[in-house]
Design a protein around this nucleic acid. Structure first.
Lengths: 144, 144
DNA sequence: TTGATATAGTCAAGATAATTGACTATCTGT
DNA sequence: ACAGATAGTCAATTATCTTGACTATATCAA
């Protein structure tokens, strides 16, 4: 027994299982640029694009880390940036066709993965798991 | 709505919440060498030490990644390696006093964190969450 | 016993992530 | 028109993680 089995190690195993399967299937689907970090970022770009700075809040990264991640995705032609006409300090981030195709595949694969775990746990248990995970990170202690 | 809220993003948020709190409190307790990757590794070193190769299976890392992580922890005087007298190809990994102190603090902090989430969710819900996470990564589909 | 193969680990080089600090350009309010 | 504040870039550094080539030891079989 290496250590007592705490919540953290269980979360770690479960999250790794999910993420590993997602990246593997995205790569198998031909999106060889798709990595774990990029998975996080691309999932935060809204349908109609957004300011680079908006992604800061969504991801919690530093602006430099975000910038380099965007640089990489732009080099891969997954997204584009252009100066915001309404505020020339900012740049708008938008998916390219290649980005849209990847997002569609990612959506499908995530649904498949959800379905796989639903078969494993049962539908009620999966819903319960999702609720509990949400409750874990809810902002406040439940009032009273 | 950036994307549909799937299980993966929930796992991600919950795991980040846990890990961020753990690293932060370990750093605050004076273990400034403590990082996320090292947290994973040091949690896999058993009380009585083990072969370096044993850690490969436990972590799932490549032997080179493992080696470099061990190098770092050895430089920080958290653990030591010595040739296995029973098989001179291998090396035994053992915690130092500094490593033991850190592990004790980590244990305490993890228990505190568990308690914090137990207060947030309630004891039954926490147990249920742990069971569901275990079920997610259990090897086989439940036989029938 | 010798050779073939497998196992345990190292070394070196490079890619990817992520951080810090210093910087430019633009906007906003006075 | 000037002082912040905001948005983003550039450069350097560190940490993490891979791949490929390598050494040393052990095991097994002829």
């Amino acid at each position: 027994m290496p250590l007592f089995e705490h919540l953290g190690i269980r979360l770690h195993r479960a999250y790794e299982a999910w993420l590993h399967a997602l990246v593997e299937e995205m790569n198998a689907a031909g999106h060889d640029w798709f990595t774990q970090g990029r998975a996080t970022l691309i999932g935060h770009v809204p349908r109609d694009g957004c300011r680079q700075a908006d992604l800061l809040g969504r991801t919690g990264w530093t602006k430099q880390a975000l910038q380099q991640m965007l640089d990489g995705l732009e080099r891969q032609d997954v997204l584009q940036r252009r100066v915001d006409p309404n505020d020339k300090r900012g740049r708008l981030v938008e998916l390219t066709d290649k980005g849209w195709a990847a997002l569609a595949d990612a959506d499908r694969i995530k649904r498949d993965l959800s379905a796989r775990f639903e078969r494993k746990l049962g539908p009620e248990a999966l819903a319960q798991l999702e609720n509990l995970l949400d409750a874990m990170v809810a902002d406040a202690e439940p009032t009273q």
